[in-house]
Design a protein around this nucleic acid. Structure first.
Lengths: 197, 197
DNA sequence: ATTTTTGTCTAACAGCTGTTAGCTTTATAG
DNA sequence: CTATAAAGCTAACAGCTGTTAGACAAAAAT
């Protein structure tokens, strides 16, 4: 078979990871075999190992890449001096856009991280916990400043993060409303549900 | 090994399905082997086949049982003459409670139905689509009656259904707030975000 | 033009997968 | 107490799993 065609500014490893993300999303990590992946890449299974060291490494790359994206974004937002409710909105909007634009990887990172193996598994669990706590404390601050309704902050986080993952259905639906409208609708419901009137 | 202990009013098959639901939730359908399941049930893998006909059948039972529960509930709610926004709230509360009380099966049904095989897969897809449409049309009615904000109804459905699945995090968290409070918090945010002021 | 590096291939491995056949043990019914 | 039915066991199957070794080919570097 022919060589893996790499697109400009990207390694062959990147091509493999992108195809893997698509398959992992469609069928799940465990149900995707290296031979499945190889076929999609246009190569024999053994050839993949010139670019990656194991199936698990692919999942690690996806999960940690995404985790870093979100972690560095929340730090950036938290460093501003916007009102808390605006911070929450910024974070929510970032989640929505990432889920729209970087769908496959974000989705996989969210659903399949359980299949990581230690030490990566523990590391990822810690990162996720830290992220949620950071998010919750922004909300908590908003509550104390009376910008946000007096509601259990971790519950708010849980609703926001999971609501966003519903964008998967949007991707699969035939008649998609425009992405901007989707974003505004979600913000409308979730942020208005939060605001202290 | 000893026999499968069945609890009163339940068959051995029910015991197997309950254990399977727990494992499918923890590790996913594909990553759970029949030998895993057998060990958890306290029996050899081959013995399971005296009670079930295949691994897939277990998933089918879980998924269709849950789908029927929700479908018959939405029909019951829709038959009342409550205001639309109250119908939405009733449906939301039912989802929350099911997710709290019947956690394993509801969660598995929601996350693992993709691993069903045809004709069950197509059937389940159709049922899910029908449910979402039914839910959306209740919301649409609420919009027309000015009870609910003018927002894309399918987007609302998507947010509600996915937000509820966040209750998984609640189950796994150490310091759980009481179930009733969780329910009120979720309703507070989601229904108030929806209501036309 | 030749060496070196990179990438792909085939063949094979050891272990796990769901499932079946056939035999034995335990519980139920007569 | 005996006959029947239900539930368990061991052993085995064919196919799939992730991964490695080693040979060959193409591309890059010298």
């Amino acid at each position: 078979m022919a060589k893996i065609k790499r697109n400009k500014n990207g390694t062959r490893k990147d091509v493999i990871i992108a195809k893997a993300a698509k398959l992992f999303r469609e069928k799940g990590f465990s149900a995707t075999s290296m031979r499945d992946l190889a076929e999609n890449v246009g190569v024999e299974a053994a050839s993949l190992y010139n670019h990656i060291s194991s199936k698990g490494e692919i999942l690690q790359e996806i999960c940690f890449r995404i985790a870093n994206t979100f972690l560095s974004h929340i730090e950036q937002v938290d460093a501003t001096d916007e009102p808390s409710i605006s911070k929450v909105e910024m974070i929510l909007r970032f989640h929505i856009r990432q889920m729209i634009e970087n769908y496959e990887e974000v989705y996989v990172s969210d659903r399949e991280w359980k299949h990581l193996t230690d030490p990566y598994l523990s590391n990822m669990q810690a990162q996720r916990r830290a992220y949620r706590q950071r998010f919750a404390s922004i909300i908590q601050q908003g509550i104390e400043r009376k910008e946000i309704k007096a509601i259990d902050a971790p519950t708010v986080v849980l609703i926001m993060l999971h609501a966003v993952s519903g964008i998967e259905s949007w991707h699969r639906s035939k008649q998609k409303i425009p992405a901007e409208q989707l974003e505004e609708n979600m913000v409308q419901i979730l942020i208005e549900g939060l605001r202290n009137k």
